[in-house]
Design a protein around this nucleic acid. Structure first.
Lengths: 239, 239
DNA sequence: CTCGCCCAAAGGTGTTACCTTTGCTGTGCA
DNA sequence: TGCACAGCAAAGGTAACACCTTTGGGCGAG
């Protein structure tokens, strides 16, 4: 991307579109590796490049700094950090990586994360879910079967996302729930890139139902192993 | 806490201690619930409270905003957000929660996260670890037994942290490795709060060795189940 | 009496100019 | 040769200001 010196857009009324644009542009460049570890930026330079004032640049730098993408150093400027120090759970970092050359790697990492988290979430859900949640889960399991057999991929995706989200929510663990967004992202990515069979496999449909059943009837171990076997299929697809 | 209007400390030379202090104070207040969802702050008010200029306050607000602890609203000020939107993987948020009344809950969440991630990390490590890493892991397993039998808790802790860190690192998944810090935190928290037996149990020592053995000899499944059983003990201790 | 328009106040956003602090670099003097 | 100090570059911090949006109240028309 590397925006050319924009003709000083001024504040055209757009609320905070200025900073968003700059943060996105630089974040994308860094996560793409266009700006590699050790690369140096200066506030002055960025002012030029984006045609904004120093304050705006500093605001943006604070955000990037808080994701550990850059570190300000006196006399050196803003030094780009190694990927190892990035805040890789920040939604924006994940989005940037999914947009760039790191896409495949990010997908793989997220899939492993799903494989780790979702079975445990299912087990916890079996212990902590409310009765509303349990009922809803059974409903969703049935809906999935219906939609899966009809071959309606988009609808199936929407319900699948709700299914997995509800389990994370029912786990009662806020750190699991916080992954909802990226898991939804992974699921959509999978169907929209044709990594899904045209009809979800019978095994997957049955397992969804079994997981819903295990959670709603309060069997943590069955829920955990069911979810694990659901994810095992996914895993074999990406490796 | 709630710092009284400091007598305008001015820039006493300290590098970026200004913003850090403000961010910490507010972040702690929000995560503690002292500032609850919907509470409103104003830049003006914060300027008064901390005796700093507007720019500094705004810098801080950007950081807090990027963690989704607050959202700026025209005419309303800075509105404190519900815990559900917080960036709960941000190291600072975790630290604040561990410092405040949310401590127990944060510990529980992190322990579940460990239970989810570490077995999968161990399995991946069995596939991807370098030969150096495999050897080192065997060493650490042996060291743990020696230190455990001697009852040297501090030394044991240090090596235990290195053991778990090395596995996360060997998994090759940067999202797993990113959890290294908080996992170390949980481990130290456990020993320093007397949640550990004076001598680590024989079973734990043996399991550490088995995990090291499984990873180093490239047996993902054994590594995964071994790590899971290691964490099962921990789990029973907190529930 | 009610509805709608207009204006003022409040407050966040963005700009500019200026000063301070820090650390590197190079040059001159001992 | 080596050390010290001057100079400079770049981030950190402050202050004053102009602008836009939101909101709410007042005032006039119907």
């Amino acid at each position: 991307m590397t925006a050319q010196p924009v003709p000083a857009g001024r504040n055209a009324g757009a609320a905070t579109v200025l900073t968003t644009h700059i943060i996105d542009a630089l974040g994308q460049d860094i996560t793409d590796g266009v700006l590699a570890e050790g690369a140096r930026l200066t506030i002055e330079g960025l002012q030029q490049r984006f045609g904004v004032s120093r304050t705006v640049v500093r605001d943006c730098m604070r955000v990037l700094e808080s994701m550990h993408l850059i570190v300000p150093k006196r006399r050196l400027g803003l030094v780009v950090q190694a990927p190892a120090s990035w805040n890789v759970y920040d939604a924006r970092v994940i989005r940037w990586r999914l947009n760039g050359p790191g896409r495949a790697g990010q997908f793989r990492s997220l899939t492993h994360l799903r494989r780790a988290v979702e079975p445990v979430a299912a087990a916890l859900a079996a212990e902590h879910a409310s009765s509303d949640q349990r009922l809803r889960l059974l409903d969703l399991g049935r809906d999935l079967r219906r939609l899966g057999e009809n071959g309606d991929l988009e609808e199936f995706l929407a319900v699948d996302i709700e299914f997995h989200t509800l389990i994370l929510e029912s786990s009662g663990n806020e750190m699991f729930l916080a992954l909802q967004g990226v898991i939804a992202e992974v699921l959509s990515g999978r169907t929209h890139q044709g990594l899904m069979p045209h009809h979800p496999k019978e095994h997957a449909l049955r397992t969804h139902e079994q997981v819903a059943e295990a959670i709603s009837s309060g069997h943590p171990t069955a829920a955990e192993t069911g979810m694990a076997s659901l994810l095992a299929e996914v895993r074999s697809a990406i490796e």
